[in-house]
């Protein structure tokens, strides 16, 4: 192979490498990078969606104003994450006792096709009595998730399906402002103080 051919090949390989590097940069760090999904939820006052609670009442973000709130997404056909989250929350509520008497605690299903109002009512009845279960249409579910910046996705399994979903718990103050997030399965010693802070903020404002 002549020296000239070698040079040509070398230049071609070098430019291909440069192009690959550029594409990689563009997709990861450049303008081609996907928008970060984990954004702060909107204030409850800016959300718009309508659902039905476990008692058959029509509810929405405005129903939560006036008291601090704890909201999370899940589905009742979930064997691990959702019962764990509901049990964790039941434990936090037990720890906080009367202090959380006025707090709204809402479990919103991302699987309203299976989680009908009666299904949600039965499911939440096994956990702390403060936990509400909200179910809406597919459209309203999408609107709710968008407001909370939560994501979910239906995933087919053998003849059935499961849901991937945001497993964090969102805390809001009594005015509907987003306060903080409790991550999935966060230890009680971190979770309970976060709830106390939201409750304290509500106290300050009313006194």
């Amino acid at each position: 192979m002549s020296r000239r051919t070698l040079l040509t090949y070398g230049a071609a390989i070098a430019s291909m490498l440069a192009l690959a590097l550029f594409i990689g940069w563009w997709q990861v760090d450049g303008t081609g990078a996907p928008e970060p999904v984990a954004q702060r939820p909107l204030p409850l006052t800016q959300m718009e969606f309508q659902m039905t609670d476990q008692g058959g009442e029509t509810v929405g973000p405005a129903s939560l104003l006036g008291n601090p709130s704890m909201v999370f997404f899940g589905f009742t056909y979930c064997p691990d994450v959702c019962p764990t989250t509901l049990s964790d929350i039941s434990g936090w509520l037990d720890d906080l006792g009367d202090d959380v008497a006025d707090m709204n605690v809402v479990f919103i299903t991302v699987d309203p096709e299976r989680d009908t109002v009666p299904a949600m009512a039965e499911y939440v009845s096994y956990f702390h009595p403060a936990i509400q279960g909200w179910s809406g249409t597919l459209d309203e579910t999408a609107r709710a998730a968008a407001g909370f910046r939560a994501s979910y996705e239906k995933v087919a399994t053998d003849g059935h399906y499961t849901m991937n979903h945001t497993a964090s718990v969102f805390l809001f103050d009594a005015d509907g402002r987003f306060a903080s997030t409790i991550d999935y399965h966060e230890p009680r010693e971190f979770a309970v103080p976060k709830i106390r802070r939201v409750l304290a903020r509500a106290e300050e404002e009313t006194s």
Partner: peptide, 30 residues
């Protein structure tokens, strides 16, 4: 169960599980 940086949880078959000598493997929530 895996939870990604955005807090999204998903489940997938774990495949074969190797338990090294003298060690434990826990099946636990999360």
């Amino acid at each position: 169960t895996k939870t990604d940086a955005n807090g999204v949880s998903s489940m997938a078959p774990a495949g074969e599980i190797i338990i090294p000598p003298g060690e434990s493997v826990s099946l636990e929530p999360g």
